[in-house]
Amino acid sequence: MTHVNRPRPATATTGGLRRRLAELRGPGHAPRPLDARALSALAANPGCRRRALLDGAGVDKTALARALGVQGAFGQSQFAFARGHAFEARVHADGGAELVRLLRAATADRSPEPAGVAVPDVAADGPEGRAARTRLALEAADEAGAGVWTVLVHPMLELDVAGAPVHLEPDAVAVAPDGRRTVIEVKSFPILDGTADPAKVGAAVRQSAVYALALEALGGTVADDALLVCPKDFSNLPTAAAVDLRRQLAAVRRQLTRLTRLADIAAELPEDVSFDVDRPAKELSAAVEAVPAAYAPECLAACELAFHCRSRARATGDVTALGRSVRGELGGLRTVEDVLAAAHGAAGDPSDPAVAALRRAARLRAEALGASGGPEAR
């Protein structure tokens, strides 16, 4: 009798979903926390079910890529990591006073000089305990005395993503005497003559928007601007700039709502699918391929599995390997083979604008090569 793997029924409860995600991760593997960097990358590509499920299950994608044998350079160097920690330690060294000064200067705050700066302890066992301590600290900050600022260093926030809770840890959150809460991101890349790398600033803004979204869920007033703290020029002295979050916050909120619920993705998988990195590479490859991906070249800078997904996209001739803009221009043509067939009149609807453009391009290329007499004209 042939055994047929059937999808599991949809998980109805949060507890059931967590058990299923633990099964997918494999026994003996603690969940890898989903940070704001990964969440902002996920929000930028909400159509990728593969990343949504792997991140939601807490799978170590670096270990998974290594087990698949397709791993490229990814993440910060140890030097950059150490430099970032050293700079952040300097920023926090004076008990939050420097962060408050930078925030007031960057936002042109005209309120009276601070009567004091409180830095509550938000340490606790486990992310749930730290999130509870953070909520209590925010409530206490709202009741602080007149003129007292509160700085929460590495608080723990919680955000619902695709039906599962995700814990997030911003560098700091400042609470003004009027209750306004500001996300603070401390980065090790420099601000040179008032200008920083646009790509790095953009990534920091996306992360800050994720933190702001989690802060909103706790109530209270969240500032439209985040404070970006970086080294000034080539020194290790901190400088700061206020960055507007409103546009990015709206984009992240919209993209997160588009994510398919993890329970729905998990329910479509056969019972024996597992991403346990201790399994043979052949089984892991089959498990990964069981979940649809939405690869784009931008994934190379944001996902540990990007090199695996790229090789699979190239092997199948998927046009997504050429980039999202190209994919959008080609309409319903999904593979390179389909594109070439449409360009040479062997397939495709002539009334389709994409097909018509391809045929015109092919005709112009043939005429140009024919005029030059090159062998490629044939």
Rank of each mutant, 00 (worst) to 15 (best):
P31I: 02
V243T: 03
P280I: 07
L68R: 11
D94P: 00
D160A: 14
G58Y: 02
D276K: 10
D160R: 14
R314N: 11
A342T: 00
G69A: 09
A371R: 15
P127T: 05
V222N: 13
V355E: 03
A131P: 05
R104V: 03
R32K: 04
A146P: 14
L330Y: 07
Q71I: 12
A313C: 13
Q255C: 10
A131H: 02
L358N: 01
A342I: 00
G323R: 09
A44H: 04
A146D: 11
A132W: 05
N45T: 04
L369K: 08
L340M: 10
L157P: 09
A371F: 14
D318S: 10
L245N: 01
R6T: 13
D264G: 08
G328N: 10
R101I: 01
A63C: 09
G345E: 01
A73S: 15
V326M: 11
I184C: 08
R50P: 07
C309S: 05
A196R: 01
K61L: 14
Y211M: 04
E298N: 05
A342Q: 05
P170T: 07
R258G: 08
A172D: 09
T13V: 05
R49D: 15
R378S: 12
E289Q: 06
A196S: 10
P165Y: 07
R247K: 13
P297G: 01
A212Q: 03
A263F: 07
E304M: 04
E216R: 08
P190T: 00
L39D: 09
A226S: 08
R130W: 03
F275Y: 13
S111E: 00
H29C: 01
A146W: 02
P120F: 04
A306L: 02
I191G: 15
N45K: 09
R279N: 09
V229H: 00
V119G: 11
A301H: 15
A313K: 07
A36R: 06
P112W: 00
A281Q: 11
C309Q: 11
A313T: 00
V153Q: 14
P270R: 04
A199C: 04
S111P: 01
P353W: 02
L262K: 08
A357Q: 14
T62M: 12
S274V: 11
T134Y: 02
R378I: 12
L157A: 05
A362G: 04
L17P: 01
G116Y: 03
K232I: 06
P165A: 07
A22P: 06
V273D: 04
A43C: 09
N5D: 14
K187D: 07
R253W: 10
L322G: 06
M156L: 03
G16I: 06
P7W: 13
T62K: 13
R360L: 12
R32V: 06
L192S: 11
A356H: 11
H3Y: 14
P350Y: 00
M156R: 14
F307K: 08
A343G: 02
R359N: 03
E271S: 15
L330Q: 05
R324S: 14
R254D: 14
G84K: 10
D349R: 12
R279T: 11
A118P: 06
L68S: 08
